[in-house]
Amino acid sequence: MQRGKVKWFNNEKGYGFIEVEGGSDVFVHFTAIQGEGFKTLEEGQEVSFEIVQGNRGPQAANVVKL
């Protein structure tokens, strides 16, 4: 599992990016966020996640808020 901080997340569009220290930013879609109810992330929030290869490159999967 990787760890990072949410760079930004757009609730209306349902996606954003996670900053990884020493690495490239990783795309995150709301469907990758674990948990119940409305799935969103806050700027600066710490998360753990896996990186998978999506249609447009690397993206976050199994995102857990820390």
Rank of each mutant, 00 (worst) to 15 (best):
F30S: 08
N11G: 07
G14E: 02
A32K: 08
L41M: 12
D25A: 05
M1A: 08
N11D: 15
I18L: 14
L66N: 05
S48A: 13
G14Y: 02
T31L: 04
I18A: 03
L66E: 12
Q34M: 13
Y15C: 03
K13V: 08
V20D: 08
M1H: 14
V63Q: 00
V63A: 03
Q34D: 15
A60L: 01
T40V: 09
N62K: 02
K39I: 04
F27P: 04
Q53S: 10
G4L: 00
W8L: 03
F49L: 12
V26T: 13
G22K: 08
P58A: 13
K5A: 09
R3S: 09
T31H: 07
Q2H: 15
E21R: 14
E19P: 02
R56Q: 08
V20T: 13
T40A: 11
E42V: 12
E19G: 15
E19L: 14
N62I: 02
T40E: 10
G44Y: 07
I51K: 10
K13R: 12
E42A: 14
Q45V: 07
Q2F: 15
G57W: 03
Q59I: 06
I51P: 10
T31K: 07
P58D: 09
S48N: 05
A60D: 00
G44S: 10
A60G: 04
S48G: 12
G44P: 02
P58Q: 11
R3I: 10
T31A: 04
I51M: 14
F17T: 05
G57T: 06
G4T: 01
K13Y: 10
L41A: 05
V20A: 12
K7L: 07
K7E: 03
A32H: 05
Q45P: 01
S24C: 10
N55D: 02
G14R: 07
K5Q: 08
A60N: 00
F27A: 03
G14L: 03
K5E: 07
V28E: 00
K13D: 06
L41S: 02
Y15R: 03
E21H: 15
I51C: 15
G37Q: 06
G23D: 15
V20H: 15
R56N: 14
Q59W: 10
G44I: 01
G54I: 03
I51R: 12
A32P: 01
E21D: 10
K7G: 05
Y15F: 08
K5W: 08
K13G: 04
V52F: 10
E42S: 09
V20M: 11
I33H: 02
E36N: 09
E36D: 11
F9C: 02
V64N: 11
G23K: 15
A61K: 14
E43G: 15
F30H: 10
M1Q: 11
V6D: 00
T31W: 02
G16T: 00
R56A: 07
G14H: 08
M1E: 13
E42H: 13
L66Q: 14
N11A: 08
V64Q: 15
N10K: 09
G57C: 04
N11W: 05
V52W: 08
E50C: 12
N10Y: 03
A60R: 01
G44A: 08
K65L: 08
V63N: 01
V28M: 04
S24M: 11
T40R: 09
V64P: 01
G4H: 02
S48V: 07
Q34W: 08
Q53T: 14
P58S: 10
G57V: 03
Y15T: 04
G14C: 05
G4N: 02
A61I: 14
K39T: 05
Q34V: 15
H29I: 01
E46P: 10
N55T: 03
G23T: 13
Q45L: 11
F30W: 10
F38K: 08
M1C: 05
V47Y: 02
G44D: 14
K5N: 10
E12M: 13
L41W: 02
V52T: 14
E12V: 07
F17K: 04
K13C: 07
K13M: 11
H29N: 03
E50M: 11
V47M: 01
G23E: 12
I18M: 03
V47S: 00
G35W: 04
E12S: 14
V6I: 11
T31N: 05
T31Q: 04
V52Y: 09
G37A: 06
V6L: 04
G44K: 09
G14I: 00
Q34G: 12
L41C: 05
V63R: 01
E21W: 09
A60V: 03
T40S: 10
W8R: 06
L66A: 08
R3C: 06
G16K: 00
F49Y: 09
V6Q: 01
Q45I: 06
V6Y: 00
K65Q: 10
E50S: 10
I33N: 01
F27H: 06
K5G: 03
T40I: 09
N10M: 06
V63D: 01
V63C: 13
K39Y: 04
V6S: 02
L66G: 13
G57K: 06
G16F: 00
P58N: 12
K7N: 11
F27R: 04
M1K: 05
D25P: 06
G16H: 00
G54Y: 04
P58G: 06
F9I: 03
H29Y: 04
Q2M: 15
G57L: 04
F30I: 06
E19Q: 14
G22H: 05
K7F: 02
Q2Y: 13
E12Q: 14
F17R: 04
V20N: 10
G35M: 13
F27N: 02
V28C: 14
V6K: 00
D25Q: 07
E36K: 09
E12W: 13
V63G: 00
R3Y: 15
G23M: 13
V63H: 01
R3K: 08
T40L: 06
W8G: 02
G54W: 04
F38D: 05
G23L: 12
T40F: 12
L66C: 07
N11F: 08
Q34N: 15
T40C: 12
T31V: 02
G22R: 12
L41H: 01
I33V: 10
E36P: 11
F17M: 04
S48E: 15
E21T: 14
S48R: 13
V64W: 09
P58R: 10
I51T: 09
T31R: 08
N10A: 08
F49A: 03
G54H: 15
A61W: 12
Q45M: 10
V52C: 11
Q53N: 13
G44V: 02
R3E: 11
D25G: 03
K5M: 07
V47Q: 00
S24W: 10
K39A: 11
E42W: 08
V64Y: 08
E50F: 10
P58V: 11
T40M: 09
E43P: 13
V26R: 03
N55P: 10
G37T: 07
I33M: 04
F27Q: 03
V26P: 01
V64I: 12
L41E: 02
E50Y: 13
